[in-house]
């Protein structure tokens, strides 16, 4: 028996919005510590890694490890039927070929359930090594989304250059070029508005705007985003989900052939 309940459907709606741009389908691996999802986009350039810890749910029970392959488009149709303040419960029997989403209104007067067929997905699993990154940037998630959106008008690629002075985002193309520099915050009044840089070595890396813009669909989940970078390795873009886990995106850099 698997059962996971959240008091507000908003969190699950936001999580789904954060991943469905990149993934058509994905396997939710459930065990007694929580729910994990790891999947690459179709072009194998980026990877989504989602963790929802058991202790972050209002109720969580998972008697046997369970892998639930879901079509995220179908899941989105179902989640659209939930009000933001509904309680949402996911339920599945051991070895089931369906999952049930149950929504309960706050006054308990409306209860809906939606049964969705599960899929057998044959997905590659990547081993992601622990890495000490040369630069870690923490900045407002809204600001990062804005920068990705603005600069993607000027080119397909975004260059991120991180030094001890700050972080610079650049793009260039037919129109011309654009640069946005963010200095490290000197005095932090509001932590969620701060730009914090931990730098061991300066880093300059180039990434496809298209994927970065997809990652920013996670912005509603949290105030701050963390970018972890080292020369010639994938970028990690992490959004923490309050009290329950995180979504991390890995993006392979563009490289000189």
């Amino acid at each position: 028996m698997f059962e996971a309940r959240l008091s507000s459907a908003t969190t699950l709606k936001k999580v789904l919005d954060a991943i469905k741009d990149l993934l058509n389908e994905a396997t939710f691996d459930c065990n007694d510590s929580g729910i994990q999802l790891q999947a690459m986009d179709n072009s194998h350039v980026s990877l989504v890694s989602l963790t929802l810890r058991a202790d972050g749910f209002d109720k969580y029970r998972c008697d046997r490890n369970l892998s639930m392959g879901m079509n995220l488009g179908s899941m989105a149709k179902i989640m659209k039927c939930a009000n933001n303040d509904d309680t949402v419960t996911m339920k599945a029997q051991d070895n089931a070929d369906t999952v049930v989403f149950m929504f309960e209104s706050q006054n308990q007067e409306k209860v809906s359930d939606y049964e969705m067929k599960l899929m057998n997905l044959d997905q590659e699993h990547l081993g992601i090594p622990e890495t000490d990154y040369a630069c870690i940037v923490r900045m407002p998630a809204m600001e990062f989304a804005r920068i990705c959106r603005d600069l993607s008008q000027f080119g397909e690629s975004l260059v991120i250059c991180c030094t001890k002075e700050g972080v610079k985002f650049s793009a260039s193309g037919d129109v011309g070029s654009a640069n946005i520099k963010l200095a490290q915050t000197t005095s932090v009044d509001k932590e969620e508005e701060a730009v914090i840089i931990e730098m061991q070595e300066p880093v300059t890396l180039t990434f496809a705007c298209r994927y970065l813009n997809s990652f920013t669909k996670a912005t509603p989940l949290t105030n701050q985003v963390q970018l972890s970078m080292s020369m010639d390795v994938p970028l990690v873009v992490e959004y923490r989900i309050q009290d329950i886990g995180h979504v991390r995106y890995y993006l392979a850099p563009k490289i000189e052939d």
């Binding site: 194998h44 350039v45 980026s46 590659e124 990547l126 081993g127 994938p234 392979a252 563009k254 052939d257």
Partner: peptide, 14 residues
């Protein structure tokens, strides 16, 4: 020439 790398180049596949 600048090209897009794939993740497999960096992470082992299981």
């Amino acid at each position: 020439e600048v090209t897009q790398a794939e993740l497999r180049k960096y992470f082992p596949v299981f």
